[in-house]
């Protein structure tokens, strides 16, 4: 089953920068895919299009078989509930505890309190932060903060997880820990798409690699490496 499908997708920003040029790509359910390429190659645009933070200029995007390009703006929240997002800067709320940060995803969906009380500790165990339930983000290390943000993205078990440079601010050892968690999430059946330019990680994981350069796909390789 095709989880994500890009058909002839182009994105030209208002200042006429061409971010993506005629992209065609199919990502199957349960795949783990690295999106690699230098800064400005269109990786972030790719991810922003998927969560409808921006609109494409041309082409169609299908998620789980549904065309999301002509999605009404009132349907966008529904789409985002099915796509977990992890960012380089974590985007945690500093005045909320680890528990509250992760619970936010469930609050937004309107899950009842008892379910939140079960699900949040569950996912925190998955990322190995059960003991930090009541800590605030500033009390955590960078790696721990990123794990909280993964927990937040995954607590409602979305079929797709997007990670934009999740190891960008982390040292190699910590980054490895993050990758283990992402692999585990992928093993459960979640489609994971990770944008990165961390050569070591890509090379050690040996997953599908799609390389972007100036908005075009220049390489799509199964069990690939970062490239030259």
């Amino acid at each position: 089953m095709n989880m994500i499908e890009f058909k002839n997708i182009s994105k030209i920003y208002e200042d006429n920068t061409v971010a993506l040029k005629n992209i065609n790509l199919v990502i199957r359910k349960g795949e783990f895919l690295f999106l690699v390429g230098p800064s400005g190659s269109g990786k972030s645009t790719f991810i922003k299009l998927l969560i409808k933070e921006i609109d494409e200029s041309n082409g169609n995007i299908y998620i789980a078989g549904r065309n999301v390009c002509n999605l009404k703006s009132s349907r966008i929240p529904q789409l985002r509930r099915n796509i977990g997002c992890v960012f380089q800067d974590y985007k945690l709320l500093p005045n909320k505890t680890v528990f509250e940060n992760v619970a936010l995803t469930l609050e937004v969906i309107g899950k009842p309190a008892y379910e939140i009380k079960i699900r949040v500790p569950q996912v925190l165990k998955l990322v190995g932060l059960y003991s930090k339930l009541n800590s605030y983000p500033y009390q955590l290390s960078a790696g721990e903060q990123q794990r909280v943000s993964i927990a937040r993205a995954f607590v409602n078990r979305p079929p797709i997880l997007l990670a934009d440079e999740p190891t960008g601010n982390l040292d190699p050892g910590t980054a490895e820990g993050i990758m283990k968690i992402l692999s585990r999430i992928n093993l459960i059946g979640t489609t994971v798409l990770m944008a990165t330019h961390d050569r070591n990680i890509v090379n050690s994981m040996r997953r599908r690699v799609v390389e972007l350069e100036e908005g075009e796909i220049i390489r799509d390789q199964k069990r690939g490496v970062y490239g030259d």
Binding site: S74, P77, R80, C85, K91, L93, L104, T105, V108
Partner: peptide
Amino acid sequence: RKEIEVMKLVGATNWF
């Protein structure tokens, strides 16, 4: 504003 951004990313509706 950061909180609002995050809320929208995890799928909050406008009313929420």
